[in-house]
């Protein structure tokens, strides 16, 4: 969204690539230490997923090494990534586009 001002001397620019509305992925990575059952519990707790959905994502992480477990606005993605890391899961954020 362009930023505006009534003052003609003030030039405001939107920093390219940092708009808050563009979607972000929360990515969960496989690690050989965390128990699979624990990862499923964490996915249910953090995102409110059903057991089936959480297990499907956990298995994708296990077999493919990583999985996009959520996509949405940056602030929420940061919160989710923090919650995953609080459970000692390896998680990162990446721009979705």
């Amino acid at each position: 969204m362009p930023l505006t001002t009534d003052d003609p001397d003030v030039k405001m620019e939107e920093k390219e690539g940092t708009d808050l509305d563009s979607p972000w992925n929360v990515v969960l990575y496989d690690d050989p230490v965390n128990f699979m059952g624990f990862v499923t519990i964490v996915l249910r707790r953090v995102f409110g997923y059903s057991e089936a959905k959480a297990e499907e994502l956990m298995l994708q992480v296990h077999h493919e090494g990583k999985s996009v477990v959520w996509t949405g606005v940056r602030e929420q993605a940061e919160l989710y990534a923090q919650q995953l890391q609080a459970h000692r899961l390896l998680a990162s954020m990446q721009r979705a586009n």
Partner: peptide, 27 residues
């Protein structure tokens, strides 16, 4: 391993260092 980087984007990474990581460390 316990406090990994979260993002390549410098803006996000800076926010993370300033706010999220200290909370995780305290926890």
């Amino acid at each position: 391993r316990i406090l990994p980087e979260v993002c390549d984007d410098e803006d996000v990474a800076a926010d993370w260092r300033d706010y999220a990581r200290p909370e995780l460390e305290a926890r």
